[in-house]
């Protein structure tokens, strides 16, 4: 749910550009960080690819009744760490946009939303590991639910800041066949739009729908991530500790 499912051309240009600029700056920083350490580069690239592919598998599976799809973004953050996890978020959002899932111009903003989940989930899991005496399942569950709640709020905030006003984007629905040589001689108007009262986007209703459907998804995703982390902590606990690259 914490994915801006808006097509291209609806959000204001300044917001779309801002999303791209911030995302590009963070991605450039992560790439610079990775390239500083060639010894870790190959290992990181390969693991990043696998985790990004796993997120793609999750995002392409939709829980139909509530229009929710699993992100597995917090799991990506736990496995990769915040920096490489953000890069994985960008890759997944870009790939999904190539396949028509989310607008291509919204990739920047969507990366920020999913990247927030990744970074926050990764940090929260580490903080809970140090402060809580809970099992890996509960640490991952809590981290996932909190990260998804924050990223969904960010998404609602972006829609609120965008101030989508249909009155400003009044569509045209008239088909005309003018004659370029004798203006007015052949002019057929097939469809004629009717005047409608411009309807403002009702942000509280939007937020209500998103939170109501999203909350179910957060719990489902939290359970799934929790069970996966519990399994990994029993079978391969080394995967849950992300090594820090020495510059």
């Amino acid at each position: 749910m914490s994915h801006i499912h808006l097509p291209d051309g609806i959000l204001p240009v300044w917001l779309v550009l801002l999303g791209w600029v911030v995302t590009a700056a963070i991605v450039a920083g992560v790439l610079w960080y990775l390239q500083r350490n060639p010894a870790e580069l190959t290992g990181r690239i390969a693991r990043l690819g696998v985790v990004a592919a796993l997120m793609m598998v999750g995002m392409s599976l939709e829980v139909v009744p509530i229009a929710y799809h699993f992100n597995l973004s917090v799991l990506a953050g736990i496995l990769l760490g915040p920096a490489a996890g953000f890069l994985a978020a960008f890759i997944v959002v870009f790939m999904l946009a190539l396949f028509g899932h989310g607008g291509i111009t919204v990739v920047g903003l969507n990366t920020l939303v999913i990247g927030t989940e990744v970074v926050l989930g990764s940090v929260l899991f580490r903080v809970f590991s140090r402060t809580l005496r809970a099992s890996p399942f509960w640490r991952a569950f809590l981290g996932t639910v909190l990260a998804l709640a924050v990223s969904t709020t960010l998404m609602v905030g972006i829609i609120g800041v965008a101030r989508i006003n249909p009155a400003e984007q009044a569509p045209r629905a008239t088909a005309t066949f003018s004659n370029p040589f004798q203006e007015g001689l052949v002019r057929v108007e097939v469809l004629q739009e009717e005047a409608h009262e411009p309807a403002e986007l009702d942000l509280p209703t939007f937020a209500g729908v998103v939170y109501a459907l999203g909350a179910v998804g957060w719990v489902l995703e939290g359970l799934l991530t929790g069970f996966i982390v519990r399994y990994l902590s029993q079978v391969r606990p080394d995967l849950l500790v992300v090594r820090r690259a020495r510059p």
């Binding site: 569509p171 309807a199 009702d202």
Partner: peptide
Amino acid sequence: AQGLGNPLG
């Protein structure tokens, strides 16, 4: 959230 006020939108 937009409602039925602007179906063309």
